[in-house]
């Protein structure tokens, strides 16, 4: 934590003292600012194009391509595309589904992966090195190769289904919320992030807590987790993004429209005649929660990533 905060505050301290700058430092500062501005433009313009195009009719989007008008809300600007989106797809249902799926995946992911990492980082038991290696080894297996076996497996699992006031067993998890959540709760990268962070917390804290009569779960809950805000924020964002962007898996396992997440909804607009304005409007709408989450957690997220990077 100390290293991390030192690293993040040093550049700010340098730029906050203009009076003491030499010419070389000033030139470097201008250069850095220009470079940053170029990067901002590079990364922000696609988003700006999306937002601006969402306000234009299809033909105008293409007419404006190749000029600065593509990035300006000029011409026949209206909210018609947004109205079209709400007419065409059950947007509220899709976004609610994605919020539920992503939210529950994040909450369970933080719980399960942090507990696994705690056991690996703080408890002493034979074979934990091997277990950690095995967990990390799963990182090299792309999800696409696991998709079909996983589909077969979830189709065999039993589930309880509410039928009025009674419960009935049903074979298969297809077309449910849990099939979109449970397979993605345990995550090797999240375990690794938590493991790395927990490993940096002084063990003396554990010993002090044990002296006070705390068990391992109390140490996890009352000592380690409260100190792990940046790691939790990073795992939350890194779990949320793929859950929110999930496309292949829900495509394979969800058949009912009322259970579909937002990314499947995007495909509704790709017909023989594509309404690009509506595509942009829908894309803008589904980007908002992601940007909001990032803004809420950005300080912790950047701190944790910087911390992980320094510790390599």
């Amino acid at each position: 934590m100390t290293t991390m905060s030192t690293l993040s505050t040093t550049p700010a301290a340098t730029t906050r003292a203009p009076g003491g700058k030499t010419n070389g430092t000033r030139r470097r500062s201008v250069l850095v600012t220009v470079l940053r501005s170029v990067l901002v433009v590079f990364f922000a313009f696609p988003i700006l194009f999306m937002l601006v195009s969402s306000l234009k009719p299809d033909l105008q989007i293409f007419a404006d391509l190749g000029s600065w008008r593509a990035f300006l809300p000029v011409g026949d600007v209206s909210l018609d595309n947004y109205i079209g989106v709400f007419d065409r797809v059950p947007f509220g249902q899709f976004i609610l589904n994605s919020i539920v799926i992503s939210g529950v995946t994040v909450a369970l992911g933080i719980l399960v992966n942090s507990m696994a990492a705690f056991a690996l980082a703080r408890l002493r038991w034979r074979g934990r090195g091997v277990v950690l290696s095995l967990i990390l080894a799963t990182l090299i297996v792309p999800f696409e190769t696991l998709a079909l076996p996983l589909l077969w497996w979830v189709n065999k699992l039993p589930s309880l289904e509410a039928d009025g006031f009674s419960l009935a067993f049903k074979q298969g998890w297809l077309d449910t919320y849990q099939v979109q959540i449970i397979p993605f709760v345990a995550n090797a990268f999240s375990v690794y992030l938590f493991y790395q962070y927990f490993d940096s917390i002084p063990r003396e804290l554990d010993e002090a807590a044990r002296m006070d009569g705390a068990g391992w779960f109390a140490i996890y809950r009352k000592v380690v987790m409260p100190l792990s805000g940046p790691a939790i924020a990073t795992v939350a964002i890194l779990t949320f993004l793929p859950a929110w962007n999930s496309y292949l898996w829900p495509l394979m396992v969800v058949q009912s429209e009322e259970l579909r997440p937002v990314m499947i909804g995007l495909q509704y607009f790709f017909q023989m005649n594509i309404s690009w304005g509506q595509v942009m409007a829908y894309s803008s709408l589904i980007t908002i929660p992601v940007v909001a989450l990032f803004l809420a957690f950005q300080r912790s997220f950047i701190n944790s990533i910087a911390s992980s990077g320094v510790k390599g």
């Binding site: 495509l251 058949q255 909804g265 495909q267």
Partner: peptide, 9 residues
């Protein structure tokens, strides 16, 4: 199903 997702489904 949306057209582009249909065959995979």
């Amino acid at each position: 199903f949306p057209q582009d997702a249909y065959n995979d489904a």
